Simulated scan of single mutants.
Amino acid sequence: MATPEDLVELGRIVSAYGVRGMIKVQPHSAQESILLNVNEWWLARLSRSGVQQEPHRLVRVSRVREHAGSIVAQLEGCDDRDQAEALKGTSVFVSRAGFPSASDDEFYWVDLIGCSVFSTADSSGPVLLGLVREVSDNGAHAVLHIDRQGLDEQGKVAFLTDDKGRVKEILVPFVQAHVPFVDIQQKRIETDWPADF
């Protein structure tokens, strides 16, 4: 089977679990429900810098459940603790096309990355804040990490940088009170967060 082009890394195998070949996976985000609801995972080893060290390989999940903030799973063909331990450090990917449908008011973080964010705080109309680079969880809610954008001297949209040449960042709480509008199809998010915050 060809490797899907829409793979999303959702976690990493951290250890064997028990003596019958089960593995323990630490999910990367609060959306571990994907790993619980998809029975085909793709595994690959990544270097510390995130460079893929081997081709993805498809594995089928025969059992999976939550366990103390992590996921434990039985993979077909992984029948003993030694086989499970050999998978330690391997990243777990799932095809985005295989994600369960999200409800109308929920979004997968991977879909928010790359969206343009506009501030509606100014009465003169929406102002471009930038692009979502990352989404994190601060314990209470998700946070959008937005790389700031604005118009350059030629009037073209460009990333804004600080004195050291780093792209400026703005953090926006991803809660209904501040982010009332998300259109994944149009890759557009609107927030009441001020542009000059």
Rank of each mutant, 00 (worst) to 15 (best):
M1N: 10
L7T: 02
V8A: 04
E9K: 14
L10Q: 13
V14W: 05
V14I: 15
S15V: 00
A16M: 04
Y17L: 04
G18Q: 09
V19Y: 12
V19C: 04
R20D: 15
G21K: 09
I23E: 03
Q26G: 02
Q26K: 14
P27K: 09
P27N: 06
H28T: 01
A30F: 03
A30W: 09
I34V: 15
L36G: 10
N39C: 02
N39H: 11
E40I: 06
L43P: 15
L43M: 09
A44C: 10
A44F: 10
L46K: 15
S47N: 11
S47W: 08
S49R: 13
S49W: 03
S49E: 07
V51N: 07
V51T: 06
Q52I: 15
Q53E: 13
Q53W: 00
E54T: 10
H56V: 00
H56N: 11
L58A: 11
L58Q: 13
V61C: 05
V61H: 05
V61A: 02
S62E: 02
R63T: 03
V64N: 09
R65K: 13
S70D: 14
Q74N: 06
L75H: 14
E76L: 13
D79V: 04
D80N: 15
D80R: 10
R81E: 14
R81T: 06
D82R: 12
A84K: 06
E85K: 11
L87V: 01
K88T: 10
G89H: 06
S91C: 11
V94F: 01
R96G: 02
F99L: 06
D104N: 12
D104V: 06
D105K: 14
E106C: 10
E106Q: 15
E106H: 15
V117Q: 07
F118E: 01
S119N: 08
T120W: 10
A121V: 00
S123I: 00
S124P: 03
L128K: 11
L128W: 11
L128I: 02
L128E: 06
L131E: 05
L131R: 14
V132E: 02
V132T: 06
V135D: 03
S136H: 07
G139P: 07
A142G: 14
L144R: 11
H145C: 08
H145E: 01
I146C: 09
D147V: 02
Q149I: 01
Q149Y: 10
D152L: 04
E153R: 14
G155V: 00
G155Y: 04
G155S: 01
L160V: 10
L160H: 05
D162T: 01
D163E: 08
G165A: 03
V167C: 10
K168M: 15
K168P: 06
I170R: 14
I170A: 09
L171E: 08
L171K: 15
L171S: 08
V175R: 13
A177T: 04
V179C: 06
P180I: 00
F181A: 03
F181L: 10
F181S: 10
V182I: 10
Q185P: 03
Q185K: 13
K187D: 01
R188A: 02
E190M: 05
E190Y: 12
P194K: 07
A195V: 13
D196E: 11
